Amino acid sequence: MRDRLNTLADTPASDMILDLTPVTFLTSGGLGAVLGLRLRLRAAGRELHLAGGDPVSKILRITGFTQVSLHNNVKEALTAAKRQHRWRRWLRRPWIP
């Protein structure tokens, strides 16, 4: 899983959405792979949006990883990613007094 996520992180794209909606259990290795992916994307100026329901939310909350962008489903994650991309693009505009 980690190798596949690293390959995806190396693709020239903007933000990434990881669909974890079918996940009911996440091992420490899986959690480490997801959080490692988040760190790699952030270092590249990109964001990771997770789509997952209550089980994923509970796992992240219990382990203390509350700074991860978590959404109930892929549609909500896609909407948030688009909104955030527009906001970052707006912030990079040249300022003209």
Rank of each mutant, 00 (worst) to 15 (best):
G45F: 01
L8W: 11
T11G: 15
I96Y: 12
R88E: 03
T11Y: 07
L60R: 08
F65W: 05
I17Y: 00
R86L: 08
R2F: 02
T7H: 12
S69N: 11
G52T: 00
L31H: 12
K82P: 01
L31N: 12
N72K: 15
M16L: 10
D3I: 11
L37H: 00
P55M: 03
H49W: 00
G52K: 00
R83S: 10
S28R: 13
A81P: 08
P12W: 06
F65N: 13
L70T: 09
M1S: 04
L8N: 15
R46G: 02
T7R: 12
I96L: 15
P97M: 10
L91R: 14
L78P: 14
S69K: 07
W95N: 12
P94I: 01
S69A: 10
A51M: 03
D54C: 06
V23S: 08
N73H: 09
R40N: 02
L20W: 00
L26G: 09
D10S: 10
S57M: 06
E47G: 05
A33V: 03
F25Y: 09
T24Q: 06
G45N: 08
K75I: 13
R2I: 04
M16V: 09
V23I: 10
L37K: 01
R42K: 11
H85V: 01
E76S: 11
S14L: 11
G30M: 08
I17H: 02
F65A: 14
V68H: 09
L8D: 15
N6Q: 12
D3Q: 13
G64N: 01
H49R: 01
V56E: 09
V68D: 09
T66Y: 03
